[in-house]
Design a protein around this nucleic acid. Structure first.
Lengths: 213, 213, 213, 213
DNA sequence: AATGAATGAGGGTTCATTCAT
DNA sequence: AATGAATGAACCCTCATTCAT
């Protein structure tokens, strides 16, 4: 019985995820407004009414999708953090930077979803929760950066004059903008080299952080 | 008669703008999807049907607001450019940066509109036009920056090793990102100091660009 | 212009009534729950969406139907009252009674609607308003009766021992009950003679009211 | 084995009643339309699907509650009848009257259910069965009254001129109307005194029935 | 040119019912 | 016998759009 219940719970969780993934695919492809609950059910391979067994409504499903995304990002950020070997501050920044780049590169098709999320922070009923979640996410990733830079300052590698707290949000946000611009260039001829931009920017930042001789 | 026609044309332009402004206000406040054509007409102080005399439909009106926004941005960018006095490259960057900051600070309430534009870029029927417009806008602003930096390199102020073309999109995008994060913090207690972040970031960039002794 | 506006108002009022009548017919025939807004629009000969130009929703339309009914009843009661000639109390009661009977007889097909109203009084969101309206309606009709009886007592025709205020609600209610039972018998073989029942009952009441010699 | 079967039958009967009671409570509280099968199952403390082991569907369950109600009423009426001592006709009417009043007073919360039943006689698929059941119920109760009055006429207590068959339905119906009006007044300040109205009306009727000296 | 009454396609949601377990 | 996950028909309502005035 215990097993059975566990399986049921597992299956329920599985179906919930099924729906979330179907929603993510369609929200990314057509946008939230133009995706109907019927579309999502079809994509998930279930009946129209079934969706409502797992989510109260379209808004809540959207929010669940958002939460899935935030969790995913936090996991990605945490993972990268633990991978940081005891190298120089510059190296750490490069590794971290690269790891973010990797996770960006794997999910191009979901990028429009992030735009939907941003837009929703303005108009959704979950607006406050979403704002907070985004803020927290940025803070969490930013804190990693702050730690790296502080360490670098202590080690006499980075310049103590830098106003870390102010500058970090800008650095963290670069990833967003790179994804955004990659998206704007997607499908056009004049390609945007995400990787090159990322690396050059990282170099520039490091040059700016380093203590002047 | 000539005058009359001219007046009519003028009035039409005026009414068109009236509608665009009304749309912008509401799109920013409630989002595109949740704003009805009736709402817009009401806000513009005209009849529901009149909107269709000036715009083919909601999508086109949305696109018109987008175009208005892009034009506005381009004008702002151009304006700043002409204001650049013959100072050092670092000074120019600071002036340019400040001018962007000023235009950001003046239009907080319209910031969600940009989010709508970004989101629409993914799902709108005008998706390709919008992508292109955004790309062009970034390019145009970027070009100003590229020019400044190139000039700085020629003047032996900035380091020629910098891969300018790759790094500029990231720098330009950061301004968006700062606006975005300011928006996420809006309404919460832990305020985000847009100005400080912007200035610190500009400093960092300049430090990175400067030729090492 | 005044005329035009007036006409428009008139037409709107007319369309509102059109919808109310269509709703009444269908609510009476199929009940509130089984009548769809589409049914009503069709019956009224208008588009589905048009209904919502005149009524906020199905519930409000139902309530409007109820209000129409209450107004109609009050008018009927008032009318009868003014028709009462300066006859004996017994005669007045007979006239009043007959007038109620007449209005009952003319609207058999709408009788189920009253049942819907009663039922809705329990479960509708307008429950309190409906309760009050019914109470007021009964009171208003009852008051006519109270006046007649009081006059009869003053004229030494009716027995002063009668507890008028207590008994009148019962008498007034009997008319409902007669309609109800007529409805139960409708369509069956063993006909229910509403008229005879009404008259016999009226006689009985009068016998009870009259002063004993 | 026989016992076991009997127990199962007994349990089935018990569960059937459980469901019926649950349905009655909810139909009375929220109305038929607003009560879901899931609500009923929950209230009955059983699974959603189980209801369908005992009743074919929502309509049939509703009809079962109706039948339960009718049986209950008939039992109540029969009971009162046997309690009638060999008193005067007037006394019998008073006793009967009081006994109905008692059963009314004990079941205020279920009164809306009767309204649902009435409404359903118009729109339910069981409409004809329900009409007949109501007719029979009224007839059965009426017959008791007819018997009492006939006896009274034979005993020279009541006036032979009374058209008994016509007048009895009106008298019987009074109980409905008293319940109805009590329901309309429920929750308001200007209380309706059910008992007083009932007694005064009974008095009036008896005065009307009594032979004039 | 300006209007707003009328429209109906479209979509979110509910819920009675089924059926595999 | 008991269950509750799954289903899709049905329905309320919104709103972009049209068109007669």
């Amino acid at each position: 019985m215990g097993r059975k219940n566990k399986n049921m719970a597992f299956n329920q969780e599985k179906k919930k995820d099924q729906i979330i993934f179907a929603a993510m695919i369609l929200f990314a492809k057509k946008g939230f407004a133009k995706t109907s609950m019927a579309d999502i059910a079809k994509e998930a391979g279930i009946g129209k009414g079934t969706t409502y067994e797992y989510f109260k409504g379209k808004d809540q499903l959207f929010f669940a999708t958002f939460q899935w995304f935030v969790d995913h990002c936090e996991k990605a950020a945490t993972l990268s953090f633990t991978e940081l070997a005891p190298k120089s501050g510059a190296e750490k920044i490069r590794v971290f930077s690269q790891s973010i780049l990797n996770s960006l590169k794997g999910s191009e098709e979901f990028y429009p979803l992030v735009l939907e999320f941003w837009a929703a922070t303005a108009s959704s009923r979950y607006r406050d929760k979403m704002k907070k979640a985004f803020k927290d996410l940025y803070k969490r990733i930013g804190d990693v950066f702050v730690a790296i830079i502080n360490e670098g300052i202590e080690n006499n590698e980075f310049d103590p004059e830098i106003d870390i707290d102010s500058v970090v949000p800008a650095i963290v946000g670069v990833w967003d903008t790179i994804g955004l611009q990659a998206w704007f260039h997607d499908g056009s001829n004049d390609e945007f080299n995400m990787e090159k931009t990322m690396l050059s920017f990282t170099d520039l930042i490091i040059r700016g952080l380093l203590k002047k001789q």
